[in-house]
C-alpha cells in the first residue's frame, strides 16, 4: 500500500501541466518564449471558449500562439501583442478583462451582491435584538397583571389560568 502511494506520488510529481504548445512553435530565446507563454495563457481561445490558447489544441489557437510569438519576436510589448488580437476578436479574448464602463458589472457585481447581503444581514440581526422588542402598552400591562392575579397552582403542579 505504501509502495503504491509512493509510486503515485512520484508519477504525479513528474508529470507537469500539459500545454498544447508544440516544440516547433517555441521561440529560441527563452526570455521571449516565457513572455509569449505567459501572454497566451491570458488569451481566450475563440473556438473552445473556456480554454486559453495556451491550453487549446484548436488550429486557430495554434495560429494565434504563433502570431503572439511573431509579434513578440518583432519587438512588440505584451500590450501591443494583445492589442493586435483584441482589435480582431474583441476584448472577449482577454481572460483577464480590462476595467471599462461596460465591464464594471463584471468587476464590481460580486462586491455589490456582498454589500447587499451584508446590509440584509445587518437589518435582520438588528430587528431580532431584544432591546428593540416593543414594550408593553398600558392596556397590555393591565391585562398581564390581571392574568397573574388569577394564576393558580393546581394540585398536579401545572399552572393554569382560571377564568374570571
Amino acid at each position: 500500500m505504501k509502495r503504491i502511494l509512493l509510486i503515485t506520488a512520484a508519477v504525479t510529481a513528474l508529470s507537469g501541466t500539459a500545454w498544447a504548445v508544440e516544440p516547433d512553435e517555441m521561440l529560441a530565446d527563452p526570455k521571449l518564449e516565457a513572455r509569449a507563454h505567459d501572454l497566451s495563457r491570458e488569451v481566450r481561445c475563440v473556438v473552445c471558449q473556456n480554454q486559453s490558447i495556451d491550453d487549446s489544441d484548436a488550429a486557430l489557437a495554434r495560429d494565434l500562439r504563433i502570431i503572439i510569438r511573431e509579434r513578440i519576436a518583432a519587438g512588440d510589448s505584451d500590450d501591443q501583442a494583445l492589442a493586435f488580437l483584441t482589435s480582431r476578436y474583441g476584448s472577449f479574448v482577454q481572460l483577464n478583462p480590462p476595467m471599462r464602463a461596460d465591464t464594471l458589472a463584471l468587476w464590481f457585481g460580486p462586491l455589490a451582491v456582498l454589500l447587499l447581503g451584508a446590509v440584509g444581514t445587518f437589518v435582520y440581526i438588528r430587528g431580532r435584538s431584544p432591546d428593540k422588542a416593543a414594550a408593553l402598552s398600558a392596556v397590555e400591562e393591565a391585562e398581564l397583571a390581571d392574568l397573574l392575579k388569577h394564576d393558580v397552582v393546581k394540585s398536579d403542579g401545572t399552572k393554569r389560568n382560571e377564568a374570571g
Binding site: V46, V47, L60, D63, L64, I67, R88, Y89
Partner: peptide, 13 residues
C-alpha cells in the same frame, strides 16, 4: 492558406 486574412477579419471558424 496561412489563415492570416481570416484572422484579420476576426474569423473564428
Amino acid at each position: 492558406r496561412s489563415g492570416r486574412v481570416g484572422i484579420d477579419l476576426g474569423v473564428s471558424g
